[in-house]
Design a protein around this nucleic acid. Structure first.
Lengths: 204, 204
DNA sequence: ACCTGAACACCGTTCAAGT
DNA sequence: ACCTGAACACCGTTCAAGT
């Protein structure tokens, strides 16, 4: 039973889902693969290289989401939701991808799709890149907080946090915060951003 | 020379700036404070509690940035830039704040300022909270990537990364990416978002 | 009340040696 | 080529014991 690079990667993604990012260790991964920790270092130079590869794998699904039909604003929303879904597909996926900067290589790949859509909408290349990155930053931030919330909920610390936060804030605002955080407001943010881009496009 | 809670916190923030988040260790912190590691656990329950306190400290400056003059869009931009500056004021500040969810308690505090500005602009509470969180997510994502880039540059790995990324992309797009990432496009993203909010406000 | 001394289980990583 | 065995320096945390 030979161990290949992809086996290590698959095992690491499995362990990520089971234990979360901060409990992803080389020793635990080695044990789950039936191997000694040192063996992992033949396949990946160090833990960072392994995590880079995991980030690659998480955003790799975006290669196949190139449904380029419909108007640019619908396409932008669809692509954003695909990126969101990709980050969400693994526990702590957003924090993992945000932590690596190789992330930006796949960001470049997925980023190309953003740029293509936005230039198609009428932006010049510079504006398209800036706007595309902005959307990506929103998605990263949104999903990091979303997954932190999931982790809190899994620890039964979510209610405790809510009670604490509620005391610092007027009641109706606290309620609005809870609602906003527990419902899926992802698309609302994207659509607001799209509305902003639209004003720039139509004014050209 | 008695050690107080604030001394530990100040020392931790110092060590963060010197060594970065991933080299912030209890043992190194203890040494820099002239104390044994165990002593730190009298002041903070564990490392997580200390990091929560650090996040608090980083965003605490926002309490004093309540210049509420001018129209809502200018106020929103100013507040966003204050949050951006706060995260940027410490090495890895954005990743540290994004990692803790207590961050959201200060987010609530700073978040209140967002909500106040946006309700003043004409949004109802629910929309104001959603829009305020969206802006915060953008700021988090933007600053995380910004500080990752700073870390890469400090390691002299930024050029290497650029070369790698450039090969996957048309030349003019690669150039636009480099430009967008090396120049300060923070305000552009916020302004696009503001333009999007404006369309919703004026249509009410 | 505040800290030391000393230990615990665990971490990432290296590397000679095996096959 | 791929992995073991064994070690290295270091990590977060605990806790009796000191003052």
């Amino acid at each position: 039973v030979q161990l290949h690079r992809e086996d290590v990667l698959a095992g690491a993604l499995d362990q990520l889902d089971r234990t979360g990012l901060e409990n992803l260790t080389m020793q635990a991964l080695a044990k789950s693969l039936g191997v000694r920790p040192g063996a992992l270092y033949w396949h990946y130079a160090d833990k960072r290289a392994l995590i880079d590869a995991m980030a690659e794998a998480i955003v790799a699904v975006l290669q196949f989401t190139d449904d380029n039909s419909g108007p640019w604003d619908e396409r932008l929303l669809r692509l954003s939701q695909a990126v969101h879904a990709a980050l969400l597909s693994r526990r702590d996926g957003a924090r993992l991808v945000a932590g690596t900067f190789v992330a930006q290589q796949n960001t470049v790949r997925g980023g190309l799709a953003f740029v293509e859509i936005l230039t198609g909408a009428g932006l010049d290349i510079h504006d398209a890149v800036t706007a595309g990155l902005s959307v990506f930053y929103y998605i990263l931030g949104y999903t990091i907080e979303e997954q932190s919330r999931l982790a809190l909920a899994a620890d039964d610390r979510w209610d405790e946090y809510q009670d604490q936060a509620r005391q610092m804030v007027p009641a109706e605002v606290g309620e609005a915060f809870r609602l906003a955080q527990e419902s899926d407001t992802f698309a609302v943010g994207i659509e607001t951003f799209i509305a902003g881009i639209r004003t720039r496009v139509s004014s050209v």
